[in-house]
Simulated assay, not measured.
Amino acid sequence: MMGRILIVALLITAVVAGGAIYYLQEYAYYEEVPASGTEDVRLTTREGEVVALPHTGFEGIDADSSPIRYRACFTVDAAQDLSGYEPYEAAEPLVGPRWFDCYDADAIGAALEEGSARALLSVENISYGIDRVVAIADDGRGWVWHQINRCGAEVFDGHPAPDGCPPVPEGVARQ
């Protein structure tokens, strides 16, 4: 009888812990990013200037718990000329919470691979080692996420910053 009680207690503890972990990963910490108008979506030109991109329908989320939890969706005119903006070669859309319906990392990644969407640099080093990346599909749908860049990847792994990287600011965590 005592063994059954112990097993039930362990199962209840596991279910509660699993539910808490799921909630913390999927819902907790995220807050809606209010649309601010023209500054919601920015791109870096080939000359290095960061400019606002005209858009509509902005939806965004972010969390203070990690610099790479930012996600956003928007729409631009499908005829928008994107040739003057800096491409982002190593774009890898990061998975967002399932409840943020407009953002599907798998679909965005597939669109980038098949060429029906383009990845562009929004802001390099929006925080040290983190770039803001924008992807825009041929139909005008757009998405934004934060991604660790090559400088961040090295520094966050405990290595010195590679050549060409900005100096590591005081307080940036090294593993």
Rank of each mutant, 00 (worst) to 15 (best):
F100Y: 14
R118I: 02
P97M: 09
G96H: 04
F74K: 08
D138A: 13
E124A: 15
H159C: 00
R118H: 04
L94F: 08
E39H: 07
L53F: 01
G60Y: 05
C151W: 02
G152R: 00
P93M: 13
R118Q: 15
R42E: 09
A107T: 09
D131R: 02
I136Y: 13
N125S: 05
G152K: 01
V95R: 14
T45F: 10
V155W: 01
S116Y: 11
Y103L: 07
R98N: 13
E89N: 13
G129A: 08
E114M: 04
A107M: 04
I136A: 09
A111C: 07
Q80Y: 12
G57S: 15
Y85P: 05
P54Y: 07
H159L: 13
G129W: 03
E49A: 10
E47M: 06
H146P: 00
R46I: 02
A91Q: 01
Q80R: 15
G158N: 13
A72P: 09
S66N: 14
V95N: 01
I148V: 12
R132F: 03
A137M: 11
D40R: 11
Y128Q: 12
I148H: 00
P160I: 05
H159I: 00
P67W: 07
W145T: 02
P160V: 11
L112F: 04
A161V: 07
L121W: 03
A78F: 05
A78C: 01
F74H: 08
G164W: 12
D131P: 04
F74M: 06
I136M: 11
V41N: 10
E49Q: 13
E154I: 02
V50C: 04
T38C: 00
V133M: 02
G60M: 11
F100C: 12
C151V: 05
I61Q: 13
D104I: 03
N125C: 01
P93D: 08
I130L: 01
V95A: 15
A153P: 01
L121I: 06
V133L: 03
E89A: 14
F100W: 10
E32M: 07
V50A: 05
R69W: 04
R141T: 14
I130V: 14
D106C: 00
V33R: 14
G96K: 06
P97Y: 13
D139E: 12
V123M: 14
A28F: 09
L43M: 12
H146M: 02
S66I: 05
A105D: 04
I126C: 00
R150Q: 08
T75H: 11
A91E: 00
D62G: 11
E49W: 01
I148F: 00
P87V: 07
P169H: 12
V168P: 01
D106A: 15
E59G: 02
S83I: 02
F58I: 08
E86Q: 15
W143P: 05
I130Y: 10
A110G: 00
D157L: 13
R141F: 09
V51M: 03
Y30A: 06
A28E: 10
